[in-house]
Lab assay of single mutants.
Amino acid sequence: KRPMNAFMVWAQAARRKLADQYPHLHNAELSKTLGKLWRLLSESEKRPFVEEAERLRVQHKKDHPDYK
C-alpha cells in the first residue's frame, strides 16, 4: 500500500470533522468538499501535512525497499 500524500494526511482528520458537522452528506460530496477546502489552504497551512507525508514516504521506502 502506498504512503499517504499530503492531501490524504490532512483529509483523514478533516473528513471526520466534516462528516460530524454534515452527517447527511454522501461520501462523494464529502470528497468534493474536502478537495475544495484543501485548495483554499495556503502553502504555510499545508506545510505540516506535506512534511508528514514526506516522513511517511521516507519510512515506507525504508520499510519496503523493493516497493515500486
Rank of each mutant, 00 (worst) to 15 (best):
L30V: 08
V9D: 07
K61V: 09
H64S: 12
G35A: 07
M4C: 00
K68I: 10
P3W: 08
R57E: 14
E29W: 15
A13K: 15
L40Q: 15
R39P: 01
K46N: 02
S42P: 15
A19D: 02
R55A: 12
A53K: 10
A14W: 07
H26Q: 13
M8D: 10
A19Y: 05
M4T: 10
R2I: 00
E45G: 13
F7H: 00
A53S: 10
V58R: 07
A11M: 07
D66V: 05
E52V: 00
K1H: 08
H64C: 06
E52M: 00
F7N: 00
Q59M: 05
D20G: 07
Q59R: 05
A14L: 07
L41E: 01
W38L: 06
L25C: 00
Q21S: 07
V58Q: 12
Q21K: 14
R15T: 00
L18A: 04
G35M: 04
H64L: 10
E29F: 15
M8S: 11
A28V: 11
L25G: 02
M8N: 04
W10F: 00
P3E: 03
R16S: 05
K61Q: 09
D66S: 08
D63Q: 08
R39K: 13
T33N: 03
A11Y: 03
A19F: 02
E45A: 15
H26V: 11
A19H: 12
D20A: 15
P23G: 15
S42V: 06
A13D: 15
R57Y: 04
E29V: 15
K62I: 05
N27P: 15
H24N: 12
K36P: 00
L30K: 03
K46I: 08
G35H: 05
A11S: 05
W10S: 00
W10E: 00
G35R: 10
A19K: 13
W10L: 01
A53G: 11
Q59A: 09
K17H: 05
A19R: 12
D20M: 11
E51A: 08
E43Q: 14
S42Y: 05
Y67I: 09
E54W: 01
A11L: 05
T33E: 14
R15Q: 03
L37M: 15
E51N: 02
Y22Q: 10
H60V: 09
A14K: 08
K46L: 01
S44P: 09
L30F: 06
A53P: 10
M4Q: 08
A28E: 13
F49L: 09
L18E: 00
E43R: 15
A11W: 07
P3Q: 06
D63T: 10
L37F: 09
L40I: 04
G35K: 14
N27F: 14
L37W: 11
D63L: 06
L34T: 00
L25R: 01
N27L: 15
P23Q: 15
Q12M: 05
N27S: 12
S44A: 09
L18F: 08
F49C: 09
W10T: 00
L37C: 11
R47P: 07
Y22N: 04
E54L: 05
A11G: 04
R16G: 06
Q21I: 12
D20N: 05
P3Y: 09
H60M: 07
D20L: 13
R57I: 05
A13G: 12
K17E: 09
A11N: 00
K62S: 09
P48Q: 06
E45P: 06
E54D: 14
A11P: 00
V9M: 05
L30R: 02
A28K: 11
L37Y: 06
M4E: 07
K68V: 06
N27T: 09
P48L: 02
L40S: 15
K46R: 08
W10N: 00
E54R: 03
R39E: 07
E43S: 13
R47L: 05
Q12V: 05
L30M: 03
E51G: 08
K17S: 06
L18M: 11
L34W: 04
V58C: 08
Y67R: 12
D20K: 09
S42T: 10
W38N: 00
R39D: 05
K36F: 01
E45K: 14
L56A: 11
S31P: 09
A13M: 03
H60G: 10
S42A: 03
E45N: 05
Q21R: 13
M8W: 13
F49G: 14
V9I: 13
P23D: 15
Y22S: 13
P65I: 04
L18D: 00
P48T: 10
A53F: 04
Q12E: 07
L34Y: 00
R57M: 09
H26S: 15
V9F: 04
R57W: 04
P23W: 07
A28C: 13
D20S: 09
P3K: 14
D66G: 12
E45C: 14
E54K: 05
D20E: 14
N5F: 01
K17A: 03
A28H: 12
R15F: 01
H26T: 15
H60S: 12
R16T: 09
Y67L: 12
F7G: 00
R57S: 10
N5V: 02
W10V: 00
R57Q: 10
A11E: 01
L37V: 08
E51R: 07
A13I: 04
K1A: 00
L56Q: 09
L41G: 08
G35N: 10
M4I: 06
Y67M: 13
L37G: 01
R39F: 02
L37S: 05
H60Q: 13
K68A: 01
Y67W: 09
W38G: 01
L25Q: 00
W38S: 02
V9R: 14
D20W: 04
E51F: 01
A28D: 02
P65C: 12
H64I: 10
L40E: 15
A53E: 12
P48W: 02
P23A: 15
L18K: 01
K62T: 10
H26I: 10
A19V: 08
R55L: 10
P48N: 10
A13C: 08
H24M: 06
A28T: 13
H24Y: 04
G35Y: 02
E51S: 04
W38M: 02
Q59E: 13
N27C: 09
R16E: 08
A13S: 15
H26L: 10
H64T: 09
P48C: 02
V50R: 11
V9E: 15
K62V: 05
K61A: 09
T33W: 15
L25Y: 05
R16M: 09
T33V: 11
G35I: 02
V50K: 08
D63W: 04
L56P: 11
K61I: 10
W10K: 05
K68T: 02
Q12A: 05
T33S: 06
Y22K: 14
R55Q: 13
S31G: 08
R57H: 10
H60N: 13
K62W: 06
L25W: 10
R2N: 14
H26N: 08
K68G: 02
K61D: 07
K68P: 09
H64E: 14
S31A: 02
P3C: 02
P65A: 10
K68L: 15
H24L: 07
